[in-house]
Amino acid sequence: MTHALKRPDFAVIAGWMKPGESVLDLGCGAGELLQLLAARGLRGWGIERDPGHVLAAIENGVNVIQSNLEAGLAGFEDNAFDHVVLSRTLQTVRHTQQILAEMLRVGHEAVISFPNFAYWKNRMAVLNGRMPVSEDLPYQWYDTPNVRFFTMLDFEGLCNAMGIVIRDRQVLDERGNTVTEEHNFLGSLAVYRIGRDD
């Protein structure tokens, strides 16, 4: 089980970071991304709520702080980290705007990955009358942790409304291959690097 195969967005995220930089990974799980980044010379901390994941992260030798996202960020100073990462989690957060603002308060920039609801297979599923279930949306409608369903265009619209600058964007299909055209149609997972307008 290699990270690269399981989480193609990790390679994208790691590619945007440099050795010696600091990173905060929100919802870090067992710390796989932080391990990858530590191996590349970054200093990282994770925020994780689930006790099982916290234990796994400690076993993996990464810095993990047990907390929910909101409380976890509140204690940190402005610009405390070079990067703040929220991978495949934004769609589970109820207070979308607050979390984006907090990420860009404690970090110089933020990296966000999320499943694109407008991916063509998802559109097909809805056209066929069913909620989509896929690699990047692997839940049934009744057990999904996702509370916000949005597309790349929706996200970019929100960034625009909040004065957030999109500095980079990588779009992946279900196999983890880079999508080079018709992103909002062919992209299953979107990864954004965003910052403040300054």
Binding site: P51, I65, Q66
Partner: peptide
Amino acid sequence: SREIVNALVKNKHAVSYSEIT
């Protein structure tokens, strides 16, 4: 304990924090 953790993170020290039920 979070006060300690936050002070450590501010210094970029290695720290893990477990809040046990």
